[in-house]
């Protein structure tokens, strides 16, 4: 079972991003997703920077995957997407397609690809279609449950599809994308003159109910879950269902400890029930159990 780092969803200063991936190069993760997937206005890192970071990670033994922007809205976005695919082809890196625009260019070029959780794969027919087009690995959409995963894994085995399965197991869940920037809206700024205010929030901007319950996290045009998804204790079940890759989504704080715990859990060094709380905040696992995503189900009571 491999560990992957999902694409960085927040807008951090370049030095912080560099420092993060310097550390990641030393962590026990096998796959690292790179690239800006949220907003085309975030240009703190140029494609050259991602190339440099990617090369360093490859030299450290990691598999590098370039992730495409989830919501493509303009010709400029498409151009940026094509440049990302060119870089991947040049370097022999894999591409994670996060919408059908990316699928179009990848299938035109007959390049193999993976998919992220924002690409809607809900059934076997979709999987087998994409497999025929070059899909190598897919990530379960965040709102799907372990039962659906089990059904799909069984179908993959029956149809003998050559596919790896990945599950989003840690981090605030990406739940929605809009053409509106909610961070700019909070600052009363127009989106196209946003002043890059999302850079002030390394962990996003919490949005609470009127009785102070964390409900969502605003991250520019993206809305994340208010609670942090944590499926650490579900790794044994994922293994039984043949999940090959477990995705950890980069967070501003404590990521080294998160990776370390998942690493110990996959190698059986962390007895169930012994895990240390990974996050000061509230966490959730509801989707996995077929419940509202925000729920925290006690697996022992389930």
């Amino acid at each position: 079972m491999q560990l992957s780092l999902g694409p960085l969803l927040y807008y951090w200063p370049a030095e912080q991003v560099d420092a993060f991936y310097q550390q990641a190069a030393e962590w026990p993760v096998e796959v690292v997703h790179l690239g800006e997937t949220v907003c085309s206005r975030r240009r703190e890192l140029k494609l050259d920077d991602w190339e440099r970071i990617g090369k360093h990670l490859v030299a450290s033994g990691k598999q590098v995957v370039l992730s495409t922007q989830a919501l493509i809205e303009s010709e400029a976005d498409l151009k940026q997407l094509r440049r990302l695919l060119d870089l991947a082809a040049e370097q022999g890196w894999q591409v994670e397609a996060n919408d059908q625009s990316a699928l179009y260019y990848l299938t035109e070029a007959e390049l193999p690809f993976t998919t992220g959780p924002s690409l809607n794969i809900y059934n076997l027919r979709t999987l087998s279609n994409l497999s025929a087009l070059g899909l190598q690995r897919w990530c379960l959409p965040v709102e799907l449950s372990r039962e659906t995963l089990a059904d799909l894994q069984q179908g993959i085995a029956e149809q003998q599809l050559d596919l790896e399965t990945e599950v989003f197991a840690y981090g605030h869940l990406p739940l929605a994308w809009s053409s509106r920037c909610f961070t700019a809206r909070y600052h009363d700024l127009p989106k196209d003159r946003c002043g890059f205010v999302c850079q002030q929030y390394a962990a996003g901007l919490p949005m609470r109910t009127q009785e102070s319950r964390d409900v969502f996290v605003l991250n520019g045009i993206q809305t994340l879950s208010g609670a942090c998804c944590n499926l650490l204790d579900q790794l044994p079940l994922m293994r039984r269902h043949g999940v090959q890759v477990v995705r950890l989504s980069p967070q501003a704080e404590g990521m080294a400890a998160v990776v370390s715990q998942f690493d110990r859990m996959r190698s059986g060094e962390l007895p169930l029930g012994q895990e240390i709380p990974l996050h000061a905040q509230q966490d959730c696992n509801g989707y996995w159990f077929g419940r509202p995503g925000m729920d925290r189900v006690n697996p022992l009571m389930d």
């Binding site: 739940l175 929605a176 809009s178 509202p292 925000m294």
Partner: peptide
């Protein structure tokens, strides 16, 4: 709808 339709999971996050 203010979110890109088909990829908005906000409702299932709060309800099932």
């Amino acid at each position: 709808c203010i979110m890109a339709e088909g990829r908005c999971y906000l409702s299932s996050y709060l309800t099932d």
